[in-house]
Amino acid sequence: MAKNRENEEVRTFAEEADSLWLITFACSIWAIHFVVCYGAAAFVCAKWSSNPAVITNMRVGLGIISVLALCAVSYIGWRSWVQWDFLDDYDYEHDLAKEEHRHEFLGHASFLLSVISFIGVIYVSLPILFLETCQ
């Protein structure tokens, strides 16, 4: 019994991880991608702004990271789509007091947030594509 109670913290997180946290995942990937892009650019431009080779490498590196971020967001989007399970019952409102509706609602919200995050990652990647120097 005592052991059971000790694991309470772990279990609570596990339950939440399955659910409410899901809606923050896609946006978190956007945030991490954003911070990595900003941090890398700030660092490279502060230390090697006169060296075009380093900047090119940085742009390629960030490009790869952007593609990875898009893949990760797509994966979250796909998982949320499965959780939403729209094509099963075409439920869009999720306004009933049922476990299923709660489950599908979180999938739906998370799916929409994945779409936003996907667009956000593309937006933030554009400067890497177009700007060839720090200035």
Binding site: F34, Y38, A41, A42, V124, P127, L131, T133, C134, Q135
Partner: peptide, 13 residues
């Protein structure tokens, strides 16, 4: 006076 590329990220966001 931050690097333009940094400004680009913030414009985008």
């Amino acid at each position: 006076g931050l690097p333009s590329i940094s400004l680009g990220f913030f414009t985008a966001a």
